[in-house]
Amino acid sequence: MSLRVAVFEDNKLVRDSFEAILNGTDGFSCTGSFSGCNNLNHDIQRSQPDVILMDIEMSGMNGIEATKIIRQQHPGIKILIQTVFEDDDKIFAAICAGASGYMLKKTSPGKLIEALQEVYNGGAPMSPGVATRVFTLFQKFAPPQEVSEQESVHLSKREKEILLLMTEGDNYHTIAKKCFLSYDTVRTHVRSIYRKLHVVSVNQAIVKAFKQRLI
């Protein structure tokens, strides 16, 4: 079954390019291509996506506002932001709104396809420069959190290694190669990290890990 992707992008050339890439890649289909988010719920109901590829700057409702609404009303849909912006304010706002990943538009088609698959599988792909900024932002805004012995979290050496690579924006495939593990083994470790930290996303895991000085 194909991974269903809806595209929200105001530039027609870029939008058509994304649609062609998706429909030309095995295992993917573009189920909707929209120039804006002003009819957001109607467009989502019509396209029934698994993942949304979302631009930030569009006329009317912008991509960050749309992301907040989607996370509230359609929590099962993953959102991958793709934009030309790599400033801290936009990145932080997108993550706080509930975006699962943040890629720059200069990302190659192959990397974009990998990122969409990664988001669908529960990952949080980011362009390398963006990942560095996110790492810095979390260090800046996540103060240490005192925890009792009963609340303390004990991650294995391998789990800490994987979590650290996730903060650098590495996807599951890249982590698997760096750690000489299979893709499924990496997913198993990530599920264990989520369970131990009582979180449901990479972003939540990173914030909690920084607060508790786990990495």
Rank of each mutant, 00 (worst) to 15 (best):
residue 149 E to V: 07
residue 210 F to T: 07
residue 161 E to F: 08
residue 141 F to L: 15
residue 55 D to A: 00
residue 54 M to T: 02
residue 68 K to H: 11
residue 101 G to T: 04
residue 87 D to L: 10
residue 176 A to L: 05
residue 68 K to R: 14
residue 14 V to C: 01
residue 58 M to C: 07
residue 83 T to W: 00
residue 128 P to L: 09
residue 100 S to D: 14
residue 25 T to E: 13
residue 109 P to C: 03
residue 182 S to E: 11
residue 63 G to K: 14
residue 162 I to M: 10
residue 215 I to D: 01
residue 157 K to R: 13
residue 124 A to L: 12
residue 38 N to F: 04
residue 18 F to C: 03
residue 38 N to D: 09
residue 1 M to H: 13
residue 148 S to D: 06
residue 3 L to G: 08
residue 29 S to H: 04
residue 45 Q to K: 05
residue 142 A to Y: 02
residue 33 S to T: 00
residue 106 K to L: 05
residue 104 L to W: 04
residue 17 S to A: 03
residue 29 S to V: 13
residue 84 V to P: 06
residue 193 I to Q: 10
residue 155 L to V: 05
residue 208 K to A: 06
residue 199 V to G: 06
residue 68 K to E: 13
residue 19 E to A: 11
residue 116 L to R: 15
residue 215 I to K: 00
residue 96 C to Y: 10
residue 25 T to H: 08
residue 41 N to D: 10
residue 188 T to L: 15
residue 182 S to G: 15
residue 214 L to M: 02
residue 85 F to K: 12
residue 167 T to P: 08
residue 172 Y to L: 01
residue 159 E to H: 09
residue 153 V to S: 03
residue 21 I to H: 01
residue 179 C to K: 13
residue 113 I to H: 07
residue 19 E to W: 02
residue 8 F to G: 03
residue 50 D to N: 14
residue 192 S to P: 05
residue 145 Q to N: 05
residue 95 I to W: 15
residue 200 V to C: 09
residue 76 G to H: 00
residue 204 Q to M: 06
residue 197 L to F: 01
residue 136 T to R: 14
residue 56 I to Y: 12
residue 61 M to R: 06
residue 125 P to N: 13
residue 96 C to D: 15
residue 81 I to G: 03
residue 175 I to Q: 09
residue 33 S to R: 09
residue 214 L to V: 02
residue 102 Y to Q: 08
residue 38 N to Q: 11
residue 162 I to Y: 05
residue 9 E to I: 00
residue 90 K to P: 07
residue 107 T to V: 12
residue 11 N to L: 05
residue 113 I to K: 04
residue 10 D to H: 01
residue 34 F to M: 04
residue 77 I to M: 02
residue 4 R to A: 09
residue 79 I to G: 04
residue 103 M to W: 14
residue 158 R to K: 13
residue 70 I to D: 03
residue 41 N to A: 10
residue 10 D to Y: 01
residue 108 S to W: 11
residue 56 I to H: 15
residue 183 Y to P: 10
